[in-house]
Design a protein around this nucleic acid. Sequence first.
DNA 1: ATTAATGGAGAGTAGTACTATCTATTGAGG
DNA 2: CCTCAATAGATAGTACTACTCTCCATTAAT
Lengths: 205, 205
Amino acid sequence: MAELARRSDLSVATIKYYLREGLLQPGRRTSVNQAVYDAAHLERLRLVRALAKVARLPLHKIREVIQAVSVESSVLGAMAVTQDALVGDIETGALDKTADEALTRAIEERGWRCEPGSPAHRAAIRAVAELQAEGLGALVDRLDDYAQAADSIGRIDLEVVSVVDSLEAMIRGVVLGSVLRRPLLDTFVLLAQQHYANELHGNAP
Amino acid sequence: MAELARRSDLSVATIKYYLREGLLQPGRRTSVNQAVYDAAHLERLRLVRALAKVARLPLHKIREVIQAVSVESSVLGAMAVTQDALVGDIETGALDKTADEALTRAIEERGWRCEPGSPAHRAAIRAVAELQAEGLGALVDRLDDYAQAADSIGRIDLEVVSVVDSLEAMIRGVVLGSVLRRPLLDTFVLLAQQHYANELHGNAP
DNA sequence: ATTAATGGAGAGTAGTACTATCTATTGAGG
DNA sequence: CCTCAATAGATAGTACTACTCTCCATTAAT
């Protein structure tokens, strides 16, 4: 276990805590006070850390994702579970009607076939509604443009996933990819903003 | 104050707390136990809520952003402050060298002019490094594609901002836009993923 | 034989974001 | 004028998350 702690950069106490919380599968017991942990345990710990630190999911959500994914036998199913965890909980009240309409227009424009009523769809409506509520109509007017960029990203995501060979590695790739690709794109957008801000400012090459 | 609580959907106790924490400017006093709050107070509360609930910034970060932005007199400055808050704190250690190289290649490919060493740039390096560490090299191989999509988004962001007229409204738009555009794009990407997942699955139209 | 680590369990801690209670006013209605 | 609810201000308490510490009996390693 000291080994596992060293390799995962976590304290022994934290690993024990994760074991208690069911985030880490128990090791193979060799005696009453000894157990061996292998590469799978290390990988699990890395996954848990990624979900906690990068996606900032609460530990109970992480447990849900891990359990759901370990049962899951399809890549699409794993993707759905991960998506649901990433959007978080949405209050089940009525959603803004004009936001729904604006979103529906954008979806039709793109020709997307997606599940209406899915957590992601509901979260999208809420996001549009918040923009409208804060008077950022100029942003809402460009939904189509953002949708076009999102389309590229979603397509690349799926292309990347479909490269992998084994189902298990694919599911792991979907979960980790969904979580880790987000900050990548976020920071890339910031860099692009810097670029165009510099251009506006007159620092053109 | 009861009025402000009602309009902002916050409890009086919470507003008092925000006053204590310096997140809300004090109202104009009319007597020792009376003060009037106006539209600016309501707007501030909405901004605080957006930064807390949507961007999930801790309150002390929100205070930093608000104070920095209120002093700020340029749109670019406000954008930089907001960017720094959104990327969070990065440990000031050495960053992964191969990740830096991969990122530099992508930036050059795009022709971006951005600040090396800025929080956003450092965060990008870390994001790439995490993908590499988790064996998601397939994703890193497509940095250019993601960068291209990010480029579109950054360009649209700046176009949206430059539409506004007054400086004050522009700064508010930059802060709120940066914060609220994120979940919009996140959910759009999820919808695009659903679309392409359906296609892969054979549910083509 | 001694020392150090292990598994297990419970209690304790730090940080965040409120929420409740108290006090001394004070404004408004009857 | 009197009462009563509301207010500003301050302090203490709460709920939750994510650990961290301490203890124990047991056992592996030297």
